[in-house]
Design a protein around this nucleic acid. Sequence first.
DNA 1: GATCATCGTGTAACTAGTTACATCTGGCCC
DNA 2: GGGCCAGATGTAACTAGTTACACGATGATC
Lengths: 340, 340
Amino acid sequence: MTEKTAKKRHNMRDVARYAGVSVATVSRVVSGASSVADTTQARVRSAIDALNFVPSAAARVINSGRSYMVGALVPTLDHAIFSRFLDALERELADHGFSLVVATTHDDPDREARRAQDLLNLGVEGFVVSGLSHSDAFGDLIARYKTPVIATSYFDPSSPLVTVGYDNGAAALRALDHLVEMGHETIAVLSGPMRDNDRTRARVRALKRQPAQALQFHDVPMGLAASESVEDVLQSDPRVTAILCLSDVIAQGAMNGLRRLDVRVPEDMSVVGVDDLPSSQSIWPPLSSVHLPVTRMGTCAAERLARWIETGERARPLELETRMVARSTVRSLDGRAREP
Amino acid sequence: MTEKTAKKRHNMRDVARYAGVSVATVSRVVSGASSVADTTQARVRSAIDALNFVPSAAARVINSGRSYMVGALVPTLDHAIFSRFLDALERELADHGFSLVVATTHDDPDREARRAQDLLNLGVEGFVVSGLSHSDAFGDLIARYKTPVIATSYFDPSSPLVTVGYDNGAAALRALDHLVEMGHETIAVLSGPMRDNDRTRARVRALKRQPAQALQFHDVPMGLAASESVEDVLQSDPRVTAILCLSDVIAQGAMNGLRRLDVRVPEDMSVVGVDDLPSSQSIWPPLSSVHLPVTRMGTCAAERLARWIETGERARPLELETRMVARSTVRSLDGRAREP
DNA sequence: GATCATCGTGTAACTAGTTACATCTGGCCC
DNA sequence: GGGCCAGATGTAACTAGTTACACGATGATC
């Protein structure tokens, strides 16, 4: 109420003047580290209350060189697999004293690089990204800033990035093995868009390396639109008894398409997915799927990134296991073809 | 490579010394505002490249007083309704030059207050929160910092917080009206946990104010566990022909329970939800639900918060419309009771 | 009673970058 | 050739908070 009514936020100098002490003393009271006499302490505290003083985060950052923020660059927030992952990531990071800044890339490498620059300008101390393929601009950025980065949803110990994730090829093979064990011989593989998605590419690559199986590959549009592609798939080969979908969203779309064609799942056709989304349990029939350990991945990525930032020691890659969750797939009747 | 090999990050003074100019000149080159001779500019730029100089975000914040960050406090990231919302929020905020810092509260008001303090320490310029009920600590915090806050998922023009959302009571009544129009007279209402969730409370309150209807209220556990509660619901009154679930997750659980009891949906029992999750379209039968405009809510909340921060003028509350999406509900056969 | 240690506190120099003001140089006009 | 203006650049004082060091006042020990 004196001379500075215009200025909204008070700083330490104001508090010091009000309490009749030096800024150093105020700083000591606020940080609580050094010893300050009880009477002085009380005087400073009442000054802080009177002036509604709150210390500036930026000034503290400037001195400590620490921002306690990490950035997550994900394709989208609107997908159960990423939101699960981020939920675990955020929780673990909070336990380590870090805050999470999220930015969406929408699978656009240029946008990823731009958003990464934004986050670096904010002062993030590390990144969590999805997959291995990133633009050169992004690579330059992290090399220049020497920022710790953990790449997730992918495990590759030979990558220049530190990966915490699973073997996407192995995950796809788990689904295939399950179908083969169930006696299925002619299997259709449905994959979504592969451009800018190295996880899907790795899954397809692994399946294509299995010459023993009669696999038929189909590219389908993402989401529920996959349901319309199912008719083409069945017409292309009547011997198909199982559909292997490289994501649960595609699998759910395929199941809708089969229902429309009056093909019963699993009696007439087995369907498996990859992701094991929560919703895959609540549909009917419950979808068999390869479970991806995204919650653990979030926890482990957070832990490793936090340690990397604190110690300066590059984290080590970590492989997490996927597992097949059989729910509604059934034994093929010895390769007997569907009724047309 | 000279005397400061230990120091990792170079600052403007280093660049100035290297280029043989003053810090002011470097600052001018970096900000690009004032006029600097071409030759000097080139010299400074090569110094910047040579030293791998990147300006400190915190120092800029300290001078501008701006952090260009906003915080979102949500119950969880692992729920389709919040991740949709945050996806839209993040996208719109990015267009306004803001970054989004997320923190999860897990419906714990104390945790919310703690995380809010963390975010304020980071220097966020505004908040997006869910619902109206928050701890006193949170209220004190935002009052003290005079931080702009937008409360979402709720519309209440009389609230001290600025709300951008929908009328939760009206949303529940939309579901009820739909069932009544379809001729249903005896309706069970399933609600999840209400403690610390004012959205659910508002929905229940609105339904309880409808004395004309024979509504039977049941509290059920969240998630798929809801499927086990369905048997009790049906046994408590055999005349029930429709189940109104206050969230889609509960509705999906209820549909699973009905399937186990061999009650056909919708022939024997109509089910409606509230949320209209993406997964509600891909289940069978597709779930009728009240659509909540969460994507628009994210966009509008971001827009209003950004404007509030930029102009200092308190945003105005905004009501968004919900709408009934009928997918699998059917006309009741004149209140005929189910076969036991 | 002198010496030393300790506690409380202030001074001032840091952290990194911005910017108002001063200064210097050169070109142009009269 | 003096005066004037503009462009380019430096100086130093800001932004807010931390902290090494110094100083003075106690109290305890010899």
